[in-house]
């Protein structure tokens, strides 16, 4: 089992290197001169002077060949230095650490909402297969999956913030600023979770041990709560775990709409101002979160599932 864990941890390294290379290439391929775009933001002018641009190019290292730039960046990263923002002149690490808690909070809230709503919905749909809840659940999952986040965000804003005026439109502060954004993020996940939970429940209800439970004369409610739900939950929670990283991705859109100062918004701003070091830092952060979340899910799966545990010893 230890070999399995070590192996799994070591796999992270090539993944991170791959992601950093791809990010680097994408930034290099992006249209426009990063120095010029940055300067527009810094100097707040549409036409920065050529001298300023060439100075900026030197500062950003754009006069070096691509591969040299990558290795300079990589060696700095390995020393724990992610550079600094050309706009705010704060260190990238500072910017990211400042933004992360907001996104983390947002993603956790969205995850909690998805579990609290999606799992019971899936159970109810499976227990009364083809009943009213099942149909509602199916409709919801189709609509929920198909509705783009920005559209849903606007609908919710119009209703709760403009019409009812019970929630703030945008900004940050207390939990009231997180309700709509996390709801928007959660809808897609609820749609998937409830379907998955339904399938998983139906699958479990066909297992032999459910027949055994019935043969003991247990009533349906006991069979479902005592024998079915826990077994049906495992694959669904595993899947949801992997979606935690995905929520960080969804945060890019949602944070921009609701003006939440999280890492998604930081990334978008960095793209718009070609704040290259911050952008690369954000990308690496996303990658690490993804990889770590997946690793944690795999580990918990091994830990929760004795069959795998014994096989791999």
């Amino acid at each position: 089992m230890n070999a399995l864990v070590v192996n799994r941890v070591l796999q992270i390294i090539p993944v991170l290197i791959g992601i950093s290379v791809i990010t680097f290439i994408l930034i290099a391929l992006a249209p426009g001169d990063p120095a010029e775009i940055s300067l527009r933001a810094i100097l707040d002018t549409d036409n920065p002077s050529p001298q300023a641009i060439s100075l900026m190019r030197a500062e950003m290292g754009l006069d070096q060949p691509y591969h040299i730039r990558y290795f300079i960046w990589l060696s700095r990263v390995l020393q724990g230095d992610l550079g600094y923002s050309y706009i705010s002149h704060k260190s990238t690490i500072h910017e990211i650490l400042y933004a992360l808690p907001t996104t983390f909070y947002l993603a956790t809230l969205a995850m909690a909402i998805s579990i609290i709503v999606g799992i019971p919905l899936g159970i109810a749909a499976a227990v009364r297969q083809n009943g009213l809840i099942d149909h509602v659940c199916r409709l919801f999952s189709v609509v929920g999956n198909a509705t783009p986040e920005f559209f849903l965000a606007i609908l919710l804003l119009l209703f709760f913030s403009i019409q009812l005026k019970i929630l703030p439109v945008a900004g940050s502060g207390g939990i009231q600023y997180f309700i709509l954004p996390s709801l928007v993020l959660a809808v897609g996940l609820i749609a998937i979770t409830s379907r998955l939970m339904r399938t998983s429940m139906l699958d479990v209800l066909e297992q032999n041990y459910i027949l055994t439970a019935r043969s003991k004369g247990l009533d349906r409610g006991t069979i479902i709560t005592r024998h079915a739900i826990k077994n049906a939950l495992l694959p669904v929670l595993t899947y949801m775990g992997t979606q935690f990283g995905w929520l960080f991705g969804g945060a890019v859109v949602v944070e921009s709409i609701f003006a939440l100062p999280g890492i998604g918004r930081l990334t978008v701003d960095a793209v718009n101002t070609r704040d290259i070091m911050v952008l690369q830092g954000c990308m690496i952060t996303f990658a690490i979160i993804f990889v770590v979340v997946n690793l944690a899910v795999d580990m918990s799966y091994i830990w929760l599932n004795p069959a795998i545990r014994y096989d791999e010893v």
Partner: peptide, 10 residues
Amino acid sequence: NPASALNPSM
């Protein structure tokens, strides 16, 4: 089929 006749998580 005893192997599948019992609830694995109980």
